[in-house]
């Protein structure tokens, strides 16, 4: 085999593969003038990644206390919390803090009842108009898929929540009711900083720095966006290992078959 030829082929193939990758990811990069969020270490990253359940639980508590007044999470049901280690009674307990409208009953009337585990997370506002009316015209987006609906993913969420700056740079003119945050497209966000140093008392006693809270919320939102992740990766390893063995066997079979030819 001519080594030079072989090499040039390998180089060509590598160049093609490399360019394909660039082309594939290139489209993601350009999104407004927002500052690029710094990459964080996440327990769920990589093919062996696992959820940090304690952190997700704190994130849930934080969402309930600090965010759920404005942001819905319409893809989650209370029953989903059982996969975070809450038992049946605890899930019932969490759900029952909320009221849902049900009905009609036998008299044709609608009625309110405490939420059950099978109910979806109760929405803070009945509709978008109501949400805007209470937020100076801005709409607090649903958070269930936010962690994968943004190119920065959980890094973006962490950066945004820790990235509020009280005094905007001199060349920035803040509009009425806006806050400066370089990680948000345009630098101005209608949400006031939602997290405060010790603004929450975590039930597991973890000190509630802003960073800690932001990390917990990001972990929670990542779980909410991809609750199947751990199952997916666990099954993935079995499937990929099986396929590798199968490939090796098929390769051996192929060699043996072709050995009959000369």
């Amino acid at each position: 085999m001519d080594i030079g030829k072989k090499l040039s082929h390998v180089v060509a193939i590598a160049a093609v593969a490399g360019l394909t990758l660039v082309a594939g990811t290139g489209s993601v990069i350009a999104s407004g003038e927002a500052k690029h969020p710094e990459a964080q270490d996440w327990s769920f990253a990589g093919p062996f990644g696992k959820f940090d359940v304690a952190s997700i639980q704190r994130g849930l508590q934080n969402y309930i206390e600090n965010c759920s007044a404005c942001h819905s999470m319409n893809q989650l049901a209370y029953r989903n919390l059982s996969s975070l280690g809450f038992n049946e009674d605890e899930v019932k307990e969490i759900a029952s803090q909320y009221e849902v409208t049900d009905g009609p009953d036998d008299n044709g009337d609608m009625f309110d009842r405490p939420a059950r585990p099978s109910d979806k997370f109760v929405l803070p506002f009945p509709n978008e108009q109501a949400a805007r009316a209470s937020n100076n015209g801005a709409f607090p987006p649903d958070l269930s898929l936010l962690a994968k609906a943004n190119p920065g993913g959980p890094d973006y969420i962490f950066a945004l929540l820790t990235g509020f700056v009280e005094e905007p740079p001199e060349d920035v003119e803040l509009a009425e009711g806006m806050n400066y945050n370089p990680f948000f497209g345009g630098g101005q966000i209608a949400m006031a900083p939602p997290l405060f140093e010790d603004g929450i008392e975590y039930s597991d006693g973890t000190p509630a720095t802003i960073e800690q809270q932001a990390r917990d919320v990001a972990n929670f939102l990542q779980w909410a966006a991809e609750p199947e992740m751990e199952d997916r990766k666990r099954i993935g390893w079995k499937v990929v290992l099986f396929l590798l063995v199968l490939s090796a066997l098929l390769y051996a079979a192929k060699r043996q078959t072709w050995a009959r030819l000369h």
Binding site: P47, R232, K233, I235, G236, W237, V239, V240, L243, L244, L246, S247, L250
Partner: peptide
């Protein structure tokens, strides 16, 4: 089989 292995790696990871 090699192709499906690559495919599975993307689908799962």
């Amino acid at each position: 089989a090699i192709w499906i292995t690559l495919f599975a790696a993307v689908v799962f990871f």
